[in-house]
Design a protein around this nucleic acid. Structure first.
Length: 308
DNA sequence: AAGGCGGTCAACCGCCGGGAT
DNA sequence: CATCCCGGCGGTTGACCGCCT
């Protein structure tokens, strides 16, 4: 027995919203706020599903939304965050004031992913397509590797890519002279709710997204839990100092959202602050703009001692 | 001028997590 | 503890628009 529908679909209007409907919804939300969306259509006099009202409000009618084109800075930030977070559009949108997850998702799907492909980089893995093809062909002639899953399965939609194919972020951090090269590399590359978020995964001590959320309160008290974890794994570096100051310093989180969003925002803020303080954000921008990164990646990565 | 085509974006769908009961 | 229900999320769809032939 499935979940009952949230509204009577037979009596619910679908499709584009009319100005009259917008006006009704705005009038209602401005006086009553946005509490129970299920009741909003009825109370606002709309023949819409509550879900549709919520979507219309959050994506279009909500105050302080930006409707103009994305700036270069926003574009760079989306690419950087996507490289770290994958398609967690709501988290990415949280870092872009006035933008919705739908905005970011559409912009990525229609513009940014194509732009990356044109530059020869795979928009999913953020790795040069040439190297991916190389990896695929290598896999084709090798017996399958045993699954590397220390914690026994994960719902992650991301994959731990071969160490020889560093993410943009990896390259930038390494180029900044912050980190040691693999296999002991300690980079902030990609996080997931379940999957290990750091190379610490290979050493039995895993940093998880949920850990960050759980540790947030402790971190704000100056315990610098995350900093300790990273310090433990990487033996101290600029990154760690940055993590300690950003995370452990109890800085303000995001734009005032509540609950888990604070943890998410703090997590991303910490990464971005770290990037800024270390100049990695600039390096990422330069890498993205540099054709040599895409064309000659193999040689440059081998120069860095990562080998392929 | 008109039809085809691709790009854009608003909106929908289904799933999931978590709070309430 | 189990179930219900709501809000949120990401993937996908389809209408609309402008450009090209």
């Amino acid at each position: 027995m499935g979940r009952p529908p949230c509204c009577d679909k037979a009596n619910v209007k679908k499709g584009p919203w009319t100005p009259e409907e917008d006006a009704k919804l705005l009038a209602y939300t401005s006086t009553h706020g946005t509490g129970n969306w299920t009741n909003v259509p009825q109370r606002a006099g709309l023949k819409r599903c509550g879900k549709s009202c919520r979507l219309r409000y959050t994506n279009y009618l909500r105050p302080n939304l930006k409707h103009e084109n994305f700036t270069q800075e926003e574009e760079d930030l989306i690419v950087t965050l996507h490289a770290m977070l994958g398609s967690r559009w709501s988290l990415i949108a949280n870092q872009l004031p006035g933008r919705t997850d739908n905005d970011v998702k559409n912009y990525w799907n229609t513009k940014l992913s194509k732009k990356l492909r044109q530059r020869g980089i795979d928009p999913i893995t953020h790795r040069p397509i040439a190297d991916l093809m190389h990896s695929i062909s290598a896999l084709a002639i090798r017996p399958p590797q045993p699954a590397h899953s220390p914690s026994g399965g994960s719902s992650s939609s991301y994959h731990h890519a071969p160490a020889a194919l560093p993410l943009i972020h990896d390259v930038a951090y390494h180029a900044a002279g912050i980190l040691q090269p693999p296999p002991q590399q300690a980079v902030i590359a990609r996080v997931d709710a379940d999957a290990p978020a750091s190379p610490a995964a290979d050493h039995g001590q895993q940093l998880k997204w949920s850990d960050f959320l759980a540790d947030e309160a402790a971190a704000s008290e100056g315990q610098q839990v995350l900093g300790h974890q990273y310090h433990h794994e990487a033996g101290g570096s600029g990154v760690l100092a940055c993590w300690s100051s950003s995370v452990g310093g109890g800085r303000a989180c995001g734009d005032g959202g509540g609950g888990g969003d604070d943890g998410a925002a703090a997590f991303i803020d910490a990464i971005l602050d770290c990037d800024k303080e270390t100049g990695v954000d600039q390096l990422i921008a330069e890498l993205l703009a540099d054709p040599a990164y895409y064309a000659g990646f193999s040689s440059s990565s081998s120069e860095m001692g990562w080998g392929c």
